[in-house]
Design a protein around this nucleic acid. Sequence first.
DNA 1: CATGAATGAGTCTTCATTCAT
DNA 2: GATGAATGAAGACTCATTCAT
Lengths: 189, 189, 189, 189
Amino acid sequence: MRHKDEKKFDAICNAAISLINEIGFAQASMSKIAKRAEVSPASIYTYFENKEDMLVQLYIQGKRKMMMFIMQDYNPDLSIETSTKTIFKKVFQFAIEHNDFFAFTEQFSNSPLIHCVKEETQDLFIPLMEMVEKAKKDNIIRDLPMELITVFSFFPIMQLSKAHLIGEIKVDDKLLDTAVDLAWRAITV
Amino acid sequence: MRHKDEKKFDAICNAAISLINEIGFAQASMSKIAKRAEVSPASIYTYFENKEDMLVQLYIQGKRKMMMFIMQDYNPDLSIETSTKTIFKKVFQFAIEHNDFFAFTEQFSNSPLIHCVKEETQDLFIPLMEMVEKAKKDNIIRDLPMELITVFSFFPIMQLSKAHLIGEIKVDDKLLDTAVDLAWRAITV
Amino acid sequence: MRHKDEKKFDAICNAAISLINEIGFAQASMSKIAKRAEVSPASIYTYFENKEDMLVQLYIQGKRKMMMFIMQDYNPDLSIETSTKTIFKKVFQFAIEHNDFFAFTEQFSNSPLIHCVKEETQDLFIPLMEMVEKAKKDNIIRDLPMELITVFSFFPIMQLSKAHLIGEIKVDDKLLDTAVDLAWRAITV
Amino acid sequence: MRHKDEKKFDAICNAAISLINEIGFAQASMSKIAKRAEVSPASIYTYFENKEDMLVQLYIQGKRKMMMFIMQDYNPDLSIETSTKTIFKKVFQFAIEHNDFFAFTEQFSNSPLIHCVKEETQDLFIPLMEMVEKAKKDNIIRDLPMELITVFSFFPIMQLSKAHLIGEIKVDDKLLDTAVDLAWRAITV
DNA sequence: CATGAATGAGTCTTCATTCAT
DNA sequence: GATGAATGAAGACTCATTCAT
């Protein structure tokens, strides 16, 4: 996508994400977002069709960022175990380092809007899925439906990251290692 | 005078829950809820202080229902494994049989409002917590922080139930057994 | 007027007056008044036709109280000057001792409702008017339209009392004497 | 973009003032004002923060208008007596010629809102206060607290103007002269 | 008779979006 | 192209009053 003004586009995205994290997206009105981005409300509509479109784009962008982040050091030559565990750790690291995007995508995932994007975001998960499929064939990861695997490995790590972000629990390196182990054990043969 | 009408109260609760499940609770306005309950918007305010109060009450009510449901056959004489697995299965069963309450409480849990109720709902989980604590002492469940245990056993079961409800995956008895096994294995020694 | 329950009637009046003084009468709803009076909202309607009627009755009642208070020691044998000055002082005293009634009637006087009661309250002022008329005939008070006399003597004393009540100025005995003198001088030959 | 429309702003102000004068400001709702101004209710909020802000602005505007009007011919070279009496007459003239503003500010002055603006409007009265202070030093006006002077000269003139406006009394030139004399006599040595 | 639940109409205010400049 | 003013529709909530008990 080429935008006339990349700066302005980013300002809007950042304003939206930060505001939504602060006050939830029911309360984050277009005007407030515009004000925080130091832009006219009308200007948002040159970048996005409407509010829903904006949220959706933001979600896709956030998910893409996260997938790139967690996969960036992926090396097919390393063992599945190492790779997978690294990825789990990267999920947590992403939550910490990009907590605005992480919190936003989580909030979005639990809203009714998620149903509008399921298909559009499938692609992002393909590399991960393939990795898992391969590990299943190699008889390392158990031969279970993908949903089950997700729900017992990724999902708990995500949930734990969230709990850490909101201060419900303090996750240090040791606890993270334990969690990663649990996730790994849960899905492996 | 007229006495507070149990029927009307229930009509409001049901209308609220079903509407919120359909359109999310930002979109479920008091007027729309009133209309569905065939009641004046003002009437809702004889039963609840305001919208937030209503949502909170509904959540507490839903969580209580669920806890009672999943614990109803709990028998301390049975083995921990049997008990725990039964509870996991009951969670799924509750999601199926009371999908309105289940979906609503899940939506609530992932909203900012959840922070206002954390304390008020702690009590509901005490029996469950105690069961786990005992199992930890007996060296059956691993000695991990409660959050980790929750996140690797209950949460995945809940998430799976959700996925089933929205048709993302079809969970049959066999798959449920597998899931329950995974949950059990994840947290046991 | 005979009321079934004088106690309840008084409770309502007092609740209404105190609440209205605290929050103004736009904000003082029938329900709030009922709550403060520890009575059902419906009960208020057994004593008053509606809100307007209640306010009007309260006003008349307040004005009557004040007139009785300021005229109570009136003695036609004393000089006009003494009588008049005493009355002025009593106005101030009434404001202090019955500030709830005083504040309420003042608030009412400056509301659009006052136009509905002008006629009904004329009678209350007759004794005072007669006193003034006599003094005019005796060539002690200047022969001016009653409105002018009111506006230059009573009104300033009332206004001063109000300023004192809200703490805008502290009126001590000396200042009161001065004010009473000013009021007297303003209207006398 | 559209520029803020002076016409529309005035329409709102006038609609507000006239409606409030007719039905009082508890009854003058934003919607009714909008309707009279032939504007959307939402539009009012582009000119004012909220209802209170609107009333306050209107009051300040009205008071400013009045002060400018009554002081416009003030000439320090003329005698205090002439100046003061002229000002008293101008007050009455203002009430006649700008009865909408006059009635509105009077209504506002007697509402609880007045306490929010006391400070903001002090400045407007400074020239008048200085004039009085000087006359006190010159031993022309009696050495009394400002409140007393106000209450025995300005307030009666204001009140008389009000009575004239609502038709309670017809104030002709002769009566006005008398009133002005009374006001002057009341506060002078 | 006294009550408190019930309500239609109305309150102020905000929203996503559009339009004139 | 970018803006900020403008708005109809809708938001949560309150009110004076009535009605069934």
